[in-house]
Design a protein around this nucleic acid. Sequence first.
DNA 1: AGAACTGTGCAACAGAAGTGCATTTTAATG
DNA 2: CATTAAAATGCACTTCTGTTGCACAGTTCT
Lengths: 138, 138
Amino acid sequence: MTEIEKTLHNKRVRPTAMRILIYKYMAGKNSAVALTDIENAFDKAERTTLYRTLKTFEEKGLVHQIDDGTNVSKFALCEPGCNCEIDQDLHLHFHCGNCDKTVCLTEHKIPHINLPQGYIAEDANLVIKGICESCSQH
Amino acid sequence: MTEIEKTLHNKRVRPTAMRILIYKYMAGKNSAVALTDIENAFDKAERTTLYRTLKTFEEKGLVHQIDDGTNVSKFALCEPGCNCEIDQDLHLHFHCGNCDKTVCLTEHKIPHINLPQGYIAEDANLVIKGICESCSQH
DNA sequence: AGAACTGTGCAACAGAAGTGCATTTTAATG
DNA sequence: CATTAAAATGCACTTCTGTTGCACAGTTCT
């Protein structure tokens, strides 16, 4: 049993061939991926399978969905300690307008905001847009 | 010349009948509107016209586009003093999961975030999700 | 082996966003 | 006021993402 199979198993996700491939693919990227990215990476892949796989991963707390403002949902693996399916891990995300990549800044949590009277916060999404580390060096 | 016509004129937007209607509609709402909302409000309206009208309004600084995480673009009128087409007015937005409305909290600016070395911020989007004022009273 | 369940593939649909082109409306000018 | 150029509008269509239903394949359990 490989590391990845163990990880899937720990999160109660049956480690099928496809799921392992998808997990491996995501683990190899340092930025969030869109469904279409995975689809293009393996040309044998079915959109539906990927779609449902990502949903399963998300439900089981293996990945989290990111809305970076591009109107395309992105996904990124959760950090080892992250329990975002129970208690949200509200880190912020950075979207580079140059290379179009979105990365998690897991060390940077969303600051607490005082809302007006009557408003109840349950979730938050903060995306910073600009130029990322590798693009700014050129 | 009405107030609205003056406002459009000041922003170099030709005040056509449709534009005045759209502006009036948005001014009457206290929450952000989607293109579909306007389409449904006037059944004579053409999607394309609305689409391009909103784009024009946005370019000329009459409205700002809001990405509230619903994957549907919303728009809201800019406040009188707002010059968000030049120098962004980074207030935050609140999306209510109950009534599905999105509102601007113009008094609440997005706090400054210290990014890691090499990252350059140009824009930011912060959306708080939860229960809004009027929904929490029931 | 057979039953029951889960995962996968195919086809199709829904909704939003966006484009090209012809026509109408508006503003500007003589 | 008639003419004309530019801007706005309406219509038809395309593309892309997300989503669902259903049938089939693969897995697990007894």
